[in-house]
């Protein structure tokens, strides 16, 4: 999932994860994400990985780095599994 998501983001937002833009880079500050891009990305993740981000994940201020996104997906999946 991580590799696929990276590839999607690199293609969608026209950048490469490298020494300058890492998994911990704030993607807004790097000029990678904008409002439209963020909404599209969250939509993509929810649709592609079968999760639905709740308030906690969206408001947790982690979803603007790659690492934060991956952690949010994992967390949302755990919650989905627990609730089943």
């Amino acid at each position: 999932m991580e590799q696929e998501l990276k590839q999607y983001m690199e293609e969608q937002f026209m950048f490469e994860f490298d020494s300058e833009i890492t998994e911990d880079t704030d993607l807004f500050k790097a000029g990678v994400l904008d409002s439209f891009g963020y909404i599209s990305l969250i939509g993509h993740i929810e649709g592609e990985y079968g999760v639905k981000f709740g308030e906690e994940a969206l408001l947790g201020n982690v979803a603007v780095t790659f690492a934060g996104l991956v952690e949010s997906v994992a967390s949302a999946r755990r919650q989905t599994a627990e609730s089943k």
Binding site: Y38, I39, F53, E55, A57, L58, N61, V64
Partner: peptide, 16 residues
């Protein structure tokens, strides 16, 4: 930015 999903996702955006 429309629809319930749009508004919910906007929460995360605005939070930034």
């Amino acid at each position: 930015f429309s629809g319930e999903d749009g508004h919910r996702r906007m929460l995360g955006l605005y939070r930034q």
